[in-house]
Design a binder for these strands. Structure first.
Length: 279
DNA sequence: AGCATCACCTGGCTGC
DNA sequence: TGCAGCCAGGTGATGC
């Protein structure tokens, strides 16, 4: 599932191949990917435009166009962007819902098995020069950082479990299921701890673990799980899954103390953790 | 306001 | 072996 490190890896790839390129065509075959406007409107607003920048906040991608519009893409759970340099040699994969053609003849294909992913175009910009809708999102740990005092203030009055807060995109943008569990493990705090019981020291460790884990995961180009639904723009899988300490490792020894990793449930959620090392 | 729950969707897995 | 039913999971809507 693409979270911040995976989306950032895709962003870096897109930046390389698309900035300065003109969009020459858009073929929308899926019914659900484009829902805020018609496929025809999306196509006509993108055609002929040149991409000037590719930016990201949390899990959202924004392609800036030369007329001030933004093409916003969210991969949700199974969305993949693939760059195909010789389209005639590579048949479209199943679940290909959008094909965007560039002026060098290459294609960016959007493949999304579960059709939760979304594409839309907007011209409403926020103060930060990103699409206005992004203002709902909390700070991006990579581009904005997560100062301890911000995290402390955002967690102090919440009664929900820590993992629910970490994956709430209004608190911090970009953390999902995998990295929330890894961050909690590194900070040695249980994912089901009530936020308002966290000590300053624990919050400090959470802020620090967030930065460390996300940066490391980006260096390794993200995590691909067994279904390999995450792949980068060139179709390559990531490398961070080998570094997961607790996520998906129920029963395996905790890297710190050796006791088996637990899969705990709270509310409708599941999390992996070491019940000895994490309090 | 803040929190919980559900809907959205498909393929793979589990258990009978 | 076959198949029903569960599970995964980010986000927005809805309900309490």
């Amino acid at each position: 599932m693409p979270e911040l490190p995976e989306v950032e890896t895709v962003r870096q790839g897109l930046e390389t191949i698309i900035v300065g390129r003109r969009i020459t065509g858009l073929d929308v075959s899926g019914k659900r990917t484009v829902r805020r406007q018609t496929a025809a409107e999306l196509g006509s607003r993108l055609s002929g435009r040149t991409v000037t920048a590719v930016r990201r906040r949390g899990k959202y991608l924004s392609l800036e166009l030369d007329d001030g519009q933004f093409l916003v893409i969210h991969l949700r759970m199974t969305g993949q962007l693939l760059h195909v340099t010789q389209p005639s040699l590579l048949p479209k994969a199943p679940h290909t819902h959008v094909v965007m053609t560039l002026d060098d003849g290459s294609e960016v294909r959007f493949v999304d098995q579960r059709t939760f992913g979304e594409w839309y175009v907007t011209d409403e910009a926020g103060e930060d020069g990103l699409p206005a809708d992004f203002s709902r999102l909390g700070p991006d740990p990579l581009s904005d950082g997560v100062p301890v005092r911000v995290l402390r203030q955002r967690l102090a009055n919440r009664r929900s479990p820590l993992k629910a807060a970490l994956t709430d995109q209004r608190v911090v943008a970009g953390i999902g299921n995998i990295y929330a569990d890894e961050i909690c493990f590194r900070a040695r705090v249980r994912p089901d701890r009530r936020c308002d019981t966290l000590t300053s020291e624990e919050t400090r460790r959470l802020a620090s673990a967030t930065a460390t884990i996300l940066r490391h995961a980006i260096r390794l180009r993200g995590s691909s799980l067994r279904d390999q639904s995450y792949r980068d723009l060139m179709g390559e899988i990531g490398g961070y899954q080998a570094r997961h300490q607790v996520y998906g490792r129920v029963g395996e020894p905790c890297p710190l103390c050796g006791s088996p990793v637990s899969r705990i449930r709270f509310g409708a959620r599941v999390a992996y953790c070491c019940e000895v090392c994490q309090q």
